[in-house]
């Protein structure tokens, strides 16, 4: 039950896009059609579900203050947390590369569908942002961290598919010329963000 609550909170209340603006760059660049949006959204969910647990283990067994205690008592008061940025981004970049190779080998169809989005995900702030939030939230075990990763990815997926659907339709509307394209996408995201603020009252 707690896991379900965690999922709902990370997907809707703390929505990556509408509350923290994580991954806005690819969100705005790839949301022109629903099809590509679904592809990128799925890739983000996938990478988050894989990287958050790995980074969680890294954080708790290597980086955190006292996390190295399992190596022996002389390591017990080591604090490597200043290295977390480098470690997290290295883990993310290499896992993305690994995932890319695995997907290409075992599921060429999925690989074709995700296309160039997979490698680009390494520099998507949603992934590193998810890892940094995981660091702040002090989850109890790997399961919680995985659910958090899935929820955050799902929230991102929902957001990009929604905006892509709206942008497909709004092409036929008569928008003031200077606002065409990016400008309108910003306003739309702002309005959707306001709607998502409604989830803030959720007591989960």
């Amino acid at each position: 039950m707690d896991l379900l609550k965690l999922f709902i909170r990370s997907a809707f209340v703390d929505n990556m896009i509408f509350t923290f603006f994580f991954g806005m760059c690819s969100y705005l660049a790839v949301s022109k059609t629903v099809k590509t949006a679904v592809g990128l959204g799925a890739a983000v969910i996938f990478v988050l579900v894989v990287t958050i647990p790995v980074n969680y283990l890294l954080e708790n067994y290597v980086l955190k203050e006292g996390a190295l205690a399992w190596l022996g008592p002389e390591y017990a008061d080591m604090d490597l947390s200043f290295l977390s940025f480098v470690m997290f981004i290295a883990v993310i970049a290499s896992i993305v590369q690994l995932v890319e190779m695995l997907v290409e080998k075992f599921s060429p169809a999925l690989y074709g569908a995700l296309g160039i989005f997979l490698p680009l995900i390494a520099v998507n702030c949603a992934i590193l942002g998810g890892a940094l939030f995981m660091q702040q939230k002090n989850f109890g075990n790997v399961g919680e961290a995985t659910v958090y990763g899935f929820g955050a990815g799902f929230g991102w997926f929902v957001a990009i598919v929604l905006i892509a659907a709206i942008r497909e339709k709004i092409r036929y509307s008569n928008i003031p010329a200077p606002l065409r394209g990016v400008g309108m996408a910003f306003i739309l995201t702002g309005l959707m963000g306001l709607a998502f603020q409604g989830f803030l009252g959720f007591n989960v």
Binding site: F18, T19, F20, F21, L179, G183, M184, F186, I187, T189, G190, L191, M192, G193, L194, Q197
Partner: peptide, 10 residues
């Protein structure tokens, strides 16, 4: 609120 910065950028 966060969403208003989107509108300001727009």
């Amino acid at each position: 609120l966060p969403p208003s910065s989107l509108v300001l950028v727009a």
